[in-house]
Write a protein that binds this DNA or RNA. Structure first.
Lengths: 190, 190
DNA sequence: TGAATTTCTTGAAGCAGTTCAAGTTTTTTA
DNA sequence: TAAAAAACTTGAACTGCTTCAAGAAATTCA
């Protein structure tokens, strides 16, 4: 049931069977339909989400009223707003499913209990978040140094399957250009 | 000697005096002159740096040959390339001091030893990196939604002192616009 | 201090990508 | 399976910011 997450955790740390039991008893898997919100702007985020099936995204609504995706989370990715989570401040983001999903939602209180019972998990979350931070820095590098077309081609090369999986306008906003321009890039009219 | 770091750590966890001793014995503080490099592109990063005095930055050299700053680190900030650090891959970044600095350099091997001796530190680094990741997401939000002038004004409002502290062309590249445009923004010619 | 270096400024020309508006295609749902 | 909704396309007009070039000002260092 939780094998996806357990496998992911055990890439970084080793759990014995007792710890696995404790962990499993603290988790719940839920099905979430496409386009449902896990978090809305203004709410305080007190849950972290692990996607075991499907795809979710973090987005904002910009001053022009257009949605802009900041991050996608597919299978084996965590998604949350850590700033809201840690500072208990209203979130600047929406988190929403892009497909029908299976998601492990881990609430702050439960996570804190788990971290006390299984201190090793601290290491897991440390490494995962350090890597995520590293990935965010690379993302900023790409945004800074590549043209729109280069960003699209680079992304397509890195994640060829994923490109088919989400509406092109969402991917366009993730890569920081307009849906219309995406259309022109894909048609080779650039 | 290490009070800045100890204070920072104890914002998130509590250390007893024995743990403090262990920690201090594993640290070294070094003075680093302005413009020295802590990491260069292509090197594998196996050290994390904590700035206790001065200012460092992470930057890249873009295809046009211009430096672009991705991140600044002032007093009480960690700076490193976590992707290179964790994956043992060549770094995409330079890390360089912007002012004369005092820096605690913590090497991977030493840090791993410390994390075993003082498991609580895992929690400290987890929280710090989760917050950093949250901050990186906010940074992407600002880059996505604000005009160049708005980004400058917003940054100036958040960090009024810091704006004076670094060359304006570095700040311009951090905010993702040209040095010339920075000059025009500051002169009100926009 | 004076020379060298670094940083900042200014205006003109250019362009990568946006915006708008309208139509077409694809997907979803009742 | 028809109607509605969501997603994609196209071209024309526009614009926020870059690029270039050259000089001025500030800072560094011998």
């Amino acid at each position: 049931m939780f094998t996806a997450l357990l496998d992911h955790i055990q890439k970084f740390i080793t759990l014995d069977s007792e710890e696995i039991d404790i962990l499993e008893s603290g988790l719940t898997l839920s099905k979430v339909k496409k386009k449902e919100h896990l978090l809305k702007e203004g709410q305080i985020c007190n849950t972290i989400y692990f996607v075991t099936k499907g795809c979710a995204r973090q987005y904002i609504i910009n001053p022009k009223g257009t949605e802009q995706t900041l991050q996608f989370a597919i299978e084996n990715w965590w998604i949350t707003d850590y700033l809201s989570y840690h500072n208990n401040t209203p979130s600047h983001f929406y988190i929403q499913t892009v497909e029908n999903c299976e998601i492990i939602a881990l609430e702050k209180k439960d996570l804190e209990t788990l971290l006390i019972k299984i201190p090793k998990l601290e290491k897991y979350f440390r490494i995962v978040s350090q890597k995520s931070f590293g990935a965010a820095q690379m993302r900023i590098k790409f945004l800074f140094t590549m043209s729109a077309e280069e960003r699209y081609n680079h992304f397509k090369k890195q994640q060829p399957d994923f490109v088919q999986r989400v509406p092109q306008y969402m991917l366009a906003s993730y890569l920081d250009f307009s849906a219309e321009f995406m259309s022109k890039i894909r048609a080779g009219k650039v």
